[in-house]
Each structure stands twice: as C-alpha cells, then as structure tokens.
Amino acid sequence: MNILIVYAHPEPQSLNGALKDFAVKRLEDAGHRVEVSDLYAMNWKPQIDSADNLAYVNDGPFNPAVDSRRAYEQGTQSQDIAAEQEKLAWADAVIFQFPLWWFSMPAIMKGWVERVYAYGFAYGVGEHSDSHWGDRYGEGNMAGKRAMLVVTTGGWESHYSARGINGPVDDLLFPIQHGVLYYPGFDVLPPLVFYRTGKTDEARFRQLCDTYGQRLDTLFSTPPIPYRQQNGGDYEIPALTLKEAFAEGQRGFGVHLKE
C-alpha cells in the first residue's frame, strides 16, 4: 500500500525524528511504499498568499478561497502545493506526526493544510442542495483513504484525561481529526499519543517503538472512529444540526459519534 507521512519537527535528532525513521523502516519492511513530507527539511512556506497562484491577477482584494479555486481549476498552483496534492492522491493512508505545541499541531503543519487543501481539491466539492450539503464529513476527495495522528507531548497522560487540567485529549484533537481529516473524507483512525516524552530513555524508546509498530502493522485493519456522516440522515440540512432523535439531551463533540 502507499503511505504518506506528513511530519513536522525542526530537529532530525529529536524523539520525533527517531520515531519517524522507525515508522518508515517498519512500513517499508512490511512491503509498503512510503513517502515523507518533512516540512521543516522542505522549508515549507506556511502562509497562504497570492504567490500560491502562478497566474495571480490582482483584480481586487485577495480572497484565499476564491484564488485557490482559480489556481486549482486552471492548473496554476505553485509547484510545492501541486506536489503535495499528488502525494495525497497517491496515498492509501496518511500519517500526520507532530509534537503537540500549544494544544495543536505546529504552525508549519497547519500551513501545509491551509495551502494544500485547495478549494475544489479538499473542500468546496459536491452538490449543495436542501438534501445534500456538499461532499464532506465522510465524503469528498479523500474518501476511501485512511488517516492517523501520531502525537507526542511532554504532559502526563492524566493531564489529558477526562478530568485533567489540559482537557480530554480526544476533545483537543477533535478539530484536527473531525475537521481537518474527516471533513474531506478520510477514515480517521484513533490517535496514537505518546506522553511524558521528555523522560524518554533507551528502554522507554523501545517501548514506544513497540507500541507504534503495532499500530503501523494494523494500519489497514484498525476500525476508524465512528463519526456520523453529514449526508447520512443524522443531520438537518441545510441547518447541519444533529436531529433530535440522536444523542437526545447531549451536547459537545461526543454527539458526532455514532452510538
């Protein structure tokens, strides 16, 4: 199978760097084809601007959505964007590996999403009507592909528990998993989170690799997170609110999971 690793850490000799190298070898030894987008090594430009369209016409205020659609449709995107889109189209599964910085992905990875997820490629696709509000949240151009987050954090696992001070880790990752990944159609696997990474010695590193290796070995058999599909009948359209018959009396991110 074809696997893309989108990786964000500035230090190749970091724990993240070692885990990324381990993942590449493990996957290749299993017969998979692997591509790595090492964003810091690529000197990836994170900001979206008019330079992303090689045929940009300054005919009014810059509108990122409108201009990304124009560039995507006309084939005038900058080469770095087009190359990453080709990798996504090629991949059967995508692993996003990063340290949790300020409760989210590093800015360089967020910039990768903003620029690569062009209008017409990752969003703005499909019919919009009173019964079908675009191909998204379970549909879209990434449908049939798998995605998984591999996240490191210096905090303790208890800090990210249901009553932990940092908030439940599933809630913190919901905007990425449900928004960035499920929105364009990925089947999203449960995340792999490594805690207290500042205390990693050689023995602990072997344990992390064992855990990571098990997840890599089951990348194509692990059941995805059971998010509700937008156009599957659970939501009022076009209001896009969950129908009262589902998760009655409940609020929050959890209502978007099938019971």
Rank of each mutant, 00 (worst) to 15 (best):
M1W: 05
I3Y: 09
L4Q: 12
A8W: 08
E11Q: 13
S14K: 00
L15A: 00
K20V: 07
F22T: 02
A23P: 00
V24W: 08
V24N: 12
R33N: 11
D38Q: 07
Y40A: 05
Y40G: 07
A41L: 13
K45T: 14
D49A: 06
N53A: 10
L54H: 05
N58Q: 12
D59Q: 10
G60C: 04
P61F: 14
N63V: 00
P64D: 12
V66F: 15
D67G: 10
Y72Q: 08
T76R: 11
T76H: 08
S78R: 09
D80W: 06
E84K: 06
E84S: 10
E86H: 04
A91Y: 05
F98W: 11
S104W: 03
M105H: 09
V113R: 04
E114S: 10
E114T: 09
Y119G: 02
G120T: 08
F121M: 03
Y123S: 14
G126Y: 02
S131A: 13
S131N: 10
H132K: 10
D135C: 01
A143N: 01
G144Q: 02
K145Q: 03
A147N: 08
L149G: 08
G154I: 14
G154A: 13
G154M: 13
H159R: 03
A162H: 05
G164Y: 08
G164T: 07
G167R: 04
V169A: 08
D170H: 13
G179D: 06
Y183D: 05
V188N: 01
L192R: 05
V193Q: 08
R196V: 11
T200A: 12
A203Q: 03
D210H: 11
F220Q: 00
I225L: 15
R228F: 03
Q229H: 12
G233T: 10
G233Y: 01
L240D: 06
A245C: 10
A245G: 08
F246R: 12
E248C: 04
G249C: 15
R251D: 07
F253H: 14
K258R: 15
E259I: 02
E259Q: 13
